[in-house]
């Protein structure tokens, strides 16, 4: 049972690393600022999901449970049983804040891109290098 789970888990991690590589390729080589923004979004999402994958664990007997108690524990052994099957809550706490704050940061980036377009008439990163462009500040 755990062999199959391990196979799926390793495949998923490999997929995330490949996604990070694809996204960094987009950030480095594409010349459109909007395409760079899309690549950055994919990059940060892949990093977040990699962090969650590191917090995953397996158990001897059953599929692990989310880090939420189903009901109020009645005896101390209930709490111990929960620790036995729960996945790591800390990466999840990190990632939740990172996702929402990343959204706000991305909107700031997109606002800057709109201003760039109003100034240069294009979202291409090479616009300031063109000969025709004259500095009007």
């Amino acid at each position: 049972m755990n062999d199959l789970l391990s196979l799926a888990f390793t495949t998923a991690i490999t997929a995330f690393v490949i996604n990070i590589a694809i996204a960094s390729y987009g950030v480095f080589t594409k010349t459109s600022l909007l395409k760079k923004a899309i690549s950055i979004i994919i990059f940060s999402d892949s990093i977040s999901i990699l962090a969650i994958a590191i917090g995953f664990r397996t158990t001897e007997t059953q599929y692990p449970s989310p880090p939420v108690l189903g009901e109020k524990p009645r005896t101390p052994s209930d709490v111990e049983a929960f620790v036995e099957v729960s996945v790591d809550p800390l990466p999840q706490a990190f990632v939740i804040t990172a996702i929402v704050i990343g959204l706000a940061a991305i909107t700031l980036l997109l606002g800057l891109i709109i201003l760039y377009y109003r100034h240069f008439g294009t979202t291409d990163i090479r616009a300031p290098l063109d000969e025709e462009y004259e500095e009007v500040i």
């Binding site: 789970l5 590191i54 001897e60 880090p67 109020k72 620790v83 790591d88 809550p89 800390l90």
Partner: peptide
């Protein structure tokens, strides 16, 4: 990164999970 996925919860995570609701 350790054996993936690990069998045991990390120590810090154990403390958090065990104390989230623990009237004792």
């Amino acid at each position: 990164l350790g054996v993936l996925p690990p069998r045991i919860l990390r120590n810090l995570a154990q403390v958090v999970a065990a104390n989230a609701y623990n009237p004792w």
